[in-house]
């Protein structure tokens, strides 16, 4: 079974975000970067399927700066076989250019499955997986929390508002991973050592033009200073009064 996993380097969720002096990006000083948490589910699922099949290859692909090699190595340490970095310092806030680069790389790979995270926790687009599938003309299921693959047929469950959709699809296909799909393994020391020797191909690429121009990156509007209406159950009437007469939401 030949499987690709697309991974992105993202700031850790605990990171305090500071806006850089250009007003268009974050100040990366002191920021800890990690493998996008949803991509961990994607890597884990690929490894599990390869293990179940008894043979195959798991290839990790990322679009990003040279620093994304570290992210790819994280996935290799979990157990993936080799990595490809499509190296560019440019970033696009329109997800389509990134999807085009990934589709270009994956097109001739003859993958049975291509995994993505459901979203990247920096840009929150929730888009690249479905876009790549569309560009490759592959069936795709997004935000999958349960997956079974039986020969050339897959069955996926995806959480929707107030229910779960059950989707059947033929392979080859693309799947984007939601929390709950599995419990990602921690790389063992041996895996980390081995990852250093696994092949990682770095290719220089040019990010295609997107259709969104960044005007500004700002901190969210400060929420108006709230107030403690009181202590204990005796404060309940004051709270209700504020909600009805001041905020007018009850």
């Amino acid at each position: 079974m030949k499987i690709a996993v697309c991974v992105k380097r993202t700031p850790d969720t605990e990171t305090r975000i500071k806006i850089a002096s250009d007003g268009k990006s974050i100040d990366e000083a002191g920021v800890k970067f990690v493998l996008n948490p949803y991509d961990e589910y994607a890597v884990e699922e690929a490894l599990k399927l390869k293990e179940a099949a008894g043979s195959g290859e798991v290839v990790v692909v990322s679009v990003g700066a040279a620093s994304a090699q570290e992210t790819i190595r994280n996935a290799l340490a979990m157990g993936a076989d080799r990595g490809v970095l499509l190296k560019t310092d440019a970033v696009s806030l329109d997800p389509l250019p990134t999807a085009k680069l990934l589709a270009g790389e994956l097109k001739s790979g003859e993958y049975d499955l291509i995994f993505f995270g459901k979203l990247a926790i920096d840009d929150y687009s929730h888009a690249v997986g479905a876009m790549v599938a569309e560009l490759l003309g592959m069936p795709a299921v997004s935000s999958v929390s349960d997956l079974t693959v039986d020969g050339s047929v897959g069955t996926a469950e995806r959480e929707i508002e107030g229910g779960v959709e059950v989707v059947e699809f033929p392979l080859p296909a693309a799947v984007t991973a939601e929390k709950g799909l599995n419990e990602p393994r921690y790389p063992a020391l041996r895996g980390i050592m081995m990852a250093k020797k696994k092949p990682l191909d770095v290719k220089d690429v040019t990010l295609p033009e997107g259709g969104l121009e960044l005007v500004a990156l700002t901190l969210p509007p400060q929420r108006q200073e709230g107030r403690i209406v009181g202590e204990g159950p005796d404060a309940v009437p004051a709270l209700i009064d504020a909600l009805r007469n001041e905020a007018k939401v009850l």
């Binding site: 305090r16 975000i17 840009d123 929150y124 969104l212 960044l214 005007v215 901190l219 969210p220």
Partner: peptide, 10 residues
């Protein structure tokens, strides 16, 4: 973006 810690204007 960034878990709601920043806002993009595009």
């Amino acid at each position: 973006a960034y878990s709601g810690k920043a806002i993009y204007t595009l």
